[in-house]
Computed example of a mutant assay.
Amino acid sequence: MARPPLPIGTWGAIRTEKLGLNRFCARARFRDYDGKTRDVEATGTTGPAAIRALKEKLRDRVTPNDDEITRETRIDTLADLWLEQMVAEEQVVPQTLNTYTSSLRSKIRPALGDLRIREATVGRLDKFLREIAAEHPSAAKTAKVVLGQMFALAVRRGAISTNPVRDTGRLRTPKRKVAALTDDDLHAVRAAIRQWQAPTPGKSGPRHTGDLADIVDLMLATGARIGEVLALRWGDLDLGAERPTVTISGTLIYLKGQGIVRQEWTKSDAGYRTLVLPSFAVGVLLTRKVAAVDSSIDAVFATRRDTWLAPNNVRRQWRRARDEAGLTWVIPHTFRKTVATLIDQEADTKSAAAQLGHGSEQVTNRHYVAKPALAPDVSVILERLGDQGDTSRAT
């Protein structure tokens, strides 16, 4: 009867042989992960030393292949190969690739780059991610996505059999209370912008334009993201219609080597939408149209050099405008949440989701609508705790 084959990833009896003075060789038959059984050997100055060296070699054994990724490949190299594949296959949009590259540069490479793939254990990766999450939860989630895809590539190339990132702990992002602007807050926002835009005697530098006030008004009128508002072209507007509209059809992104460019699609399919404009927004746009100069990019908001207005510059302007108004908690996304909250209150969540360009009402309800938790109506049950004709209290 034929001897049964060794289980995958195991070896048979270890044999030692003296090769010379202070030189020993240990050998064993190892069944590789491709099912083939091969001779593996290691040397040492003594028999036991050779056996220890062989066991370490067998422990880290990888199926021989012609691929460039093995268990001995450094994570730095794995990152480079993964990025090359992402670029070649155009798996993600450029801004997402920039985010991944930034995570590699600032988080992953400094901490893990010199490790070999076999050394990236579940425990080591879990500790790395938890340390980042303690200070920057969103950065930890990005790093986990990047590492997960990198090690998935290593699995596909046969370097490892399982992806260690899958077994790391779940990263929990602290839930933040959705904050929307009240009427008083809106008055304060506009007052802060007016004060910031007012000319200051003796102040050097270019005079502030009315862009910030108009941008904020359009965010409040549409619920659009700041990049979507800044990507608006005059051709996206129909101000002469009985019900004036704007079509959100793109957004601004930053590309390395190109700067700020207009991406000809929105964040999601649901983000491509046509919105009916309230009258105050129509007034803002008509005023800008009258004062507008010819623009080669047809931008509603263009710089003096006829380029797209950078979202980061607008965010910086808003931070300066809000500093003295006690509105440090208000960010551009707050205007978007204010729109969602108002529509949810006056109409429904479905309408709010459509206005914001969300594909899911759950996203809108959970992250964009400010409202207190509504308890179920148990007033009939609680009625039993009331005074049920207790005569002892009668006068």
Rank of each mutant, 00 (worst) to 15 (best):
G257H: 03
E72I: 02
D39H: 08
Y33W: 15
R124F: 07
W329K: 04
H187C: 07
A321G: 09
G227D: 06
I117L: 11
A213Q: 04
D32E: 13
P372F: 09
A213K: 03
E228D: 02
R320P: 04
H208M: 05
R305Y: 14
A221T: 01
L232H: 05
K177S: 07
D294F: 13
F24P: 03
L21C: 08
R61C: 06
Y368L: 04
I69L: 03
T142D: 10
D185T: 06
T121I: 08
I215H: 01
E90K: 14
Y368A: 00
Y368I: 00
R74H: 11
N98L: 01
R166K: 15
T70I: 07
D39L: 09
G283C: 04
P206H: 15
L218M: 03
R29D: 13
V276N: 07
W11H: 09
T247L: 09
E17Q: 15
A143F: 06
A375F: 02
V145P: 04
K18W: 03
T168E: 07
W11N: 01
I248H: 06
V62M: 14
R38K: 14
K18M: 10
V363R: 11
S360V: 02
E131G: 00
I248E: 06
P372N: 12
I381S: 01
I160Y: 05
W11T: 00
P48D: 09
K371C: 05
T209M: 03
K107M: 11
Q362F: 07
R31Y: 13
G223F: 08
P372M: 11
E119I: 01
L252K: 03
R366H: 07
S204D: 11
R61N: 05
Q388P: 00
R116W: 08
Q345C: 08
R3V: 09
W318C: 06
N313P: 12
P94G: 12
I215S: 01
L21A: 13
P311T: 03
V246E: 06
I51Q: 14
N98D: 11
R316L: 10
L21G: 08
T121V: 10
S138Q: 08
R38F: 09
A188K: 00
T247R: 15
R176W: 01
A152D: 11
A373M: 10
R304S: 15
T364D: 06
A394V: 12
L112G: 00
S161M: 13
E228G: 00
Q362K: 14
D217Y: 00
I260P: 04
D184E: 07
L54K: 05
S103R: 04
L186S: 00
T73F: 02
D185C: 01
R116T: 02
Q149G: 06
T341N: 09
S138T: 14
W234Y: 10
A325E: 05
Q258D: 15
T37D: 12
E264L: 07
D183K: 09
Y254A: 12
R52I: 08
Q317A: 08
Y100H: 12
L153R: 01
